[in-house]
Amino acid sequence: MSDPATLAGTGRRARTRRWMASWRNRDTRAAYLFILPWLVGFALLTAGPMIASFVLSFTNYDGIGPTKNVGFDNYRQLFDDPSVATSMMNTLVFTALRVPLSMALALALAMLLLRVTRGSGFFRTVFYLPVMTPSVAVGILFLLLFNGNVGVINRALEFVGITGPSWTTDGSWVKPGLVLTTLWALGGTVVIYLAALKNVPQELYEASELDGAGRWTSFVNVTLPQISGALFFTLIVNTIASLQTFTEAYTAFYGTANTQTYSSDAALFYVVYLFQQAFQFMHMGYASALSWLLFLVILVITLVQARLSKRFVYYEGEAR
């Protein structure tokens, strides 16, 4: 009987031989040539900086002076720095609020759009248009709309007898306010859900109707499982985007010397703090360590989500 290690080695060698042989094929060479621009871009603009930042995370690099190795000091400092915990908690709270809310709202809008037959293209465009709004403009808009004294939101609340909170200054309301502002641009998620909803086979609804299922039962037992792939995709993408949120909060609270003066810790998101450390305090080494911590947090959350997806996500053609 052959040794499994030998078999594995033979298998690897066979795969390598097949891969080398594939280069004799002109189509293979052409394919690699066509993906070369992306590969070069990835190496130079993504993989390269990632490796560099990993190396820098063990140094005191400040972009100007001499650089020396500081071992794990930057990583140790992550645990002593109170702003790391504050900014991480702010980011997690923001993510926990924004992701489910944006997914639920986008799904509701997509289901409404599904029912529209006349002018559906127009409505799809209207819902997608806010995605084009620059995030910087959204940040400024936040300050104008949510001003506690003269903002439109509080004026509207006042109209129905509610005294609105100080959205931009009260630490408890800053994050909910920013979540509401970012919901403005959920057109991308709506479009994905709409495409997924259109692919749900009609016969499944007919069958559930014959079985006496109501609308809610059909939605829970037919619609949600059928679009679970799209839901999972947007869950991952929106979670990562929320954990990396920067522009709106930075514009509203840290973008100018004036806004920075008044910025409270409530809007100090992790990437904002990372940016401050790197480009304002010139602690590039420490900022690199911060970025690797964020990478690990995102990796763990994504892996947990992927693990859970095996239970909840249905892909067409897979055996259940």
Binding site: T169, D170, Q260, S264, A266, Q280, F281
Partner: peptide
């Protein structure tokens, strides 16, 4: 910048009710 940010953030933490003056300034 770090020095300025330290005292400005302390003032902001007190203004937003997150900390008392003594605690914020000690931090």
């Amino acid at each position: 910048t770090e020095f300025r940010k330290a005292w400005q953030s302390a003032v902001n933490r007190v203004l937003s009710g997150d900390q008392e003056p003594e605690e914020a300034l000690r931090q």
